[in-house]
Design a protein around this nucleic acid. Structure first.
Length: 645
DNA sequence: ATTAGGG
DNA sequence: CCCTAAT
């Protein structure tokens, strides 16, 4: 994970050349069947294999494919047509003159094609097919080509072993017998069209016997054909590659052959039997070289894809990956893979939101989504683990990383950070349990907030427990008795819990804000928190006990457990209650559950009680300060809303 | 720091 | 709920 970036980069550096060669070859040559050989790194990344590795694999494949009969056991036509020199000249010429330009053009074209989704309909496609028909008919490549797919399916799901070399089917078989899938079709069509437009091949038209070429010459030819250098010194390999390029077919035997009119014609063995035999075998294997589908787990694929993409980006030369890969990429990226990405990116919006919210408080906060290591920037990093991790988190909690003032933590994705300002409760708590408070502050930072709506939400049990613990002390110490009493009395065991949670939340949240930001700047308005019945009750009780107007007292004593209710809140609520009660009063006295459309139907009894209190307060209020705790007795009386006074 | 009121 | 003025 951590080292992924570096590692990847390194890898690229080291093997880039080969990789590129390999890939470019695959991409740019007209080889119908495009399979990308890749090596699976320890971290699950897929690294394009080097030419050498390719060869190695090819050899390995020999065994499996040895059974295949050679279809091209034909005689060898003379290679008189071209002299090496002439051929080379031609190649060079092509290369020097328009070769590169055309190559580029071709690549560009291919790129376009890739982006395009319709292949079969496109004229080029048709043309391409026509072009190829010849070669197709010539060999039974089709059959061979199909084989790979079968093989792949046979393999069944398996895990990719790290550090193993295997062939990944990047592309699909040529559209010999009709494309199996669109990707294939497109691919093949691309190849064909490209081929047609390439001068290189046209120049080489005629019979060519590569056997006479030296390695160096072969390399030159390779270069001319594919427009890039190769470090491979394997003559056979070179020949085959070139042949493939020239014939636009992967059906190239390793034996002696000549190329005529873009067709491969086997020639009589000129070399010693042994070699010939070997080459034959190799040819066989090369017939359908290739294809090994790797069964990769989804994740691996994702990771590998990412890395590949990254590679592509890095090199900038890989215009595209083979169809399959592309498809997979797309799918993955859109499906599961998305997850990973989402993890990383999703935040943007969220961040904005947050920043918007918090900007006021703390301007300096910087939110950055840690996500997984920047996949975006360094796909290579995408190591499975990371992705995985992210995914897991996401799934479980939907969290995202947020870094605030140097701290990074998980934030429930769904939940919106609540910006409660540091409540006085916090202060209160501090008073009682300084240490706790401190703790809370830290904690709070970690747990931004949860929607008020969430009751038991889910953010995390841990959080919850923590908060509870924190609160408990206070709770008990302070108003524990009362609280419990109330809580128990009313329906609210649950509520109580909620409150606690809320409280925790709040406290945490508030503290967070405090710790990190300018404490007082305008915090975002506190999320609306509906008043619960229990709270209302408490409020009423509090008012009854301590008198209206002594909000701070009430809050401190009766709402110790509710950190989010400030004295102002209490006051406001009381005001509302009063209003409500008054409004309701005339209309109904008997209508008990007159629940207004409003969110919280306040039980009539309470309203009446409120009214009573209001009255009382009014009366006494004029004289002096409201009643003191001494009035508690009244509370009980009022409790039922019975007439007081 | 609280409280009362307006928005 | 927020904000502000007045205590």
């Amino acid at each position: 994970m951590e080292h992924s970036v570096g590692t990847v980069i390194d890898t690229v550096d080291t093997e880039e050349k080969d990789e590129e060669e390999r890939r470019d070859e695959k991409l740019s040559d007209t080889e119908p069947v495009v399979y990308q050989l890749v090596r699976v790194e320890g971290d699950g990344r897929l690294v394009p294999a080097t030419d050498d590795e390719v060869k190695e694999v090819e050899k390995l494949l020999e065994d499996e494919k040895s059974e295949l009969a050679i279809k091209h056991a034909g005689g060898c036509l003379s290679s008189e047509g071209f002299t090496k020199k002439s051929v080379l000249e031609g190649l060079m010429q092509a290369e020097d003159t328009e070769g590169s330009r055309k190559l580029n053009a071709r690549l560009e074209e291919e790129r376009l094609w890739l982006s395009g989704k319709s292949f079969s309909h496109s004229p080029k496609c048709v043309a391409a097919k026509d072009q190829t028909s010849e070669s197709i008919s010539n060999g039974n490549a089709c059959l061979d080509k199909l084989q790979p797919e079968n093989t792949s399916s046979e393999r069944g799901p398996g895990t990719l072993e790290p550090n193993t070399v295997c062939n990944v089917e990047v592309g699909t078989a040529e559209a010999c017998s009709g494309a199996q899938n669109e990707a294939v079709a497109s691919r093949s069509s691309i190849s064909k069209s490209c081929t047609s437009s390439l001068p290189d091949f046209s120049i080489l038209r005629g019979e060519i016997c590569l056997d006479d070429f030296s390695i160096r010459e072969l390399q030159e030819a390779f270069r001319a054909t594919f427009g890039r250098e190769t470090s491979v010194k394997d003559k056979l390999w070179l020949k085959r590659r070139i042949a493939m390029g020239l014939t636009n077919s992967c059906h190239v035997p390793n034996t002696n052959f000549i190329i005529k009119d873009n067709k491969i014609i086997l020639s009589e063995a000129k070399e010693d039997p042994m070699k010939q035999h070997q080459s034959e075998i190799e040819a066989e294997s090369s017939l359908s070289l290739d294809i090994r589908v790797i069964n990769i787990t989804h994740q691996n694929i994702e990771a590998s894809l990412d890395s590949q993409i990254a590679d592509d980006n890095v090199s900038g030369k890989r215009l595209r990956s083979p169809p399959l890969l592309d498809d997979m990429k797309d799918e993955n990226s859109q499906m599961e893979h998305c997850t990973a990405k989402r993890m990383r990116k999703p935040t943007k919006r969220y961040i904005e939101e947050l920043s918007e919210l918090e900007s006021r408080e703390c301007t300096a906060k910087s939110y950055s989504c840690m996500k997984n290591s920047g996949d975006d920037n360094f796909p290579a990093n995408v190591p499975t683990r990371t992705v995985f991790y992210g995914d897991a988190n996401r799934r479980l909690i939907s969290t995202r990383y947020v870094s605030l003032g140097g701290f990074s933590f998980h934030v429930p994705f769904v939940l919106r950070a609540r910006r409660g300002r540091p409540r006085k409760n916090t202060v209160v708590l501090m008073k009682y349990h300084p240490s706790f408070v401190y703790h809370m502050e830290e904690t709070s930072v970690l747990i931004p907030a949860r929607l008020e709506d969430n009751e038991n939400g889910s953010p995390s049990k841990e959080i919850r427990s923590v908060s509870v613990q924190i609160l408990q002390p206070n709770f008990v110490g302070e108003m524990g008795t009362e609280m419990d009493k109330d809580a128990l009395n009313s329906e609210d065991e649950v509520n109580l819990e909620h409150r606690r949670l809320d409280e925790h939340e709040d406290s945490t949240h508030g503290s967070a804000n405090n710790s990190q930001q300018a404490p007082k700047s305008g915090q975002r308005r506190k999320h609306h928190r509906a008043w619960t019945l229990c709270e209302v009750r408490k409020l009423v009780d509090g008012v009854a006990k301590y008198g209206a107007g002594r909000w701070s007292e009430i809050r401190r004593l009766a709402f110790a457990s509710y950190s989010y209710r400030t004295s102002v809140d209490l006051k406001d609520k009381w005001r509302n209650l009063l209003r409500a009660s008054l409004a309701q009063c005339p209309t109904e006295k008997g209508a008990k559950n007159s629940r207004k459309h409003t969110s919280i139907p306040i039980p009539t009894p309470i309203l009446s009680q409120v009214r009573e209190l209001a009255k009382l307060h009014a009366q006494t209020g004029i004289n002096t300060s409201p009643r003191k705790p001494a009035d508690q007795g009244s509370k009980d009386v009022h409790g039922e809303g019975s007439g007081f006074l």
